[in-house]
Amino acid sequence: MTTEPDPFEQGQRAARANIPAEANPYQDGSEQHALWAAGHEQVASAAEAQESEDESEDT
């Protein structure tokens, strides 16, 4: 049984690997593109929030 890779999870992995959102491999306007972007944004937003919190603790 082969399963298609989940675009949302692929986007999350890309964000964790510091791959920019512009590297989305799916065709712009497709459902997969939107899912990949949503996964990427979720992880990237969380990382940015953590960085911001860490910076405020340093001051």
Rank of each mutant, 00 (worst) to 15 (best):
M1P: 06
M1A: 14
M1H: 08
M1E: 12
T3V: 14
P5N: 10
P5C: 06
P5W: 05
P5S: 11
D6L: 01
D6P: 00
D6G: 00
D6A: 01
P7S: 07
P7N: 02
F8K: 02
F8P: 01
F8V: 05
E9Q: 12
E9T: 08
E9R: 03
Q10L: 14
G11F: 02
G11W: 00
G11C: 09
G11S: 09
Q12R: 04
Q12G: 03
Q12E: 14
R13W: 03
A14P: 02
A15E: 00
A15V: 02
A15H: 01
A15N: 02
A15F: 02
R16P: 02
A17M: 12
A17W: 06
A17E: 15
A17F: 05
A17Q: 14
N18I: 03
N18D: 14
I19N: 04
I19M: 11
P20S: 14
P20D: 10
A21V: 10
E22R: 14
E22T: 15
E22I: 14
E22G: 12
E22S: 15
A23R: 14
N24T: 11
N24R: 01
N24A: 11
P25Y: 08
P25C: 09
P25H: 07
Y26K: 00
Y26D: 10
Y26Q: 03
Y26I: 07
Y26E: 11
Q27G: 06
Q27R: 10
Q27I: 09
D28S: 12
D28N: 08
D28L: 09
D28G: 05
D28E: 14
D28Q: 13
D28P: 04
D28F: 07
G29P: 02
G29N: 05
G29I: 01
S30T: 15
S30V: 08
E31Q: 12
E31L: 12
E31S: 13
Q32T: 06
Q32H: 11
Q32K: 04
Q32F: 06
H33W: 12
H33P: 01
L35F: 06
L35H: 09
W36P: 00
W36I: 00
W36M: 00
A37F: 02
A38W: 04
A38S: 14
A38C: 05
G39Q: 00
G39K: 00
G39R: 00
G39C: 03
G39T: 01
G39Y: 00
G39S: 05
H40M: 02
H40T: 00
H40K: 00
Q42Y: 05
Q42F: 04
V43T: 14
V43S: 06
V43L: 08
V43M: 11
V43D: 11
A44T: 02
A44F: 10
S45H: 10
S45E: 13
S45F: 08
S45D: 15
A46L: 14
A47G: 05
A47L: 13
A47Y: 06
E48S: 13
E48V: 08
A49M: 10
A49R: 04
A49E: 07
Q50C: 06
Q50A: 15
Q50G: 06
Q50I: 12
Q50E: 15
E51C: 06
E51K: 13
E51F: 09
E51Q: 13
S52H: 11
S52W: 04
S52C: 04
E53N: 10
E53V: 03
E53Y: 13
E53W: 09
D54V: 12
D54F: 10
E55V: 01
E55G: 03
E55P: 01
E55K: 03
S56E: 15
E57R: 04
D58T: 12
T59H: 07
T59A: 13
T59K: 12
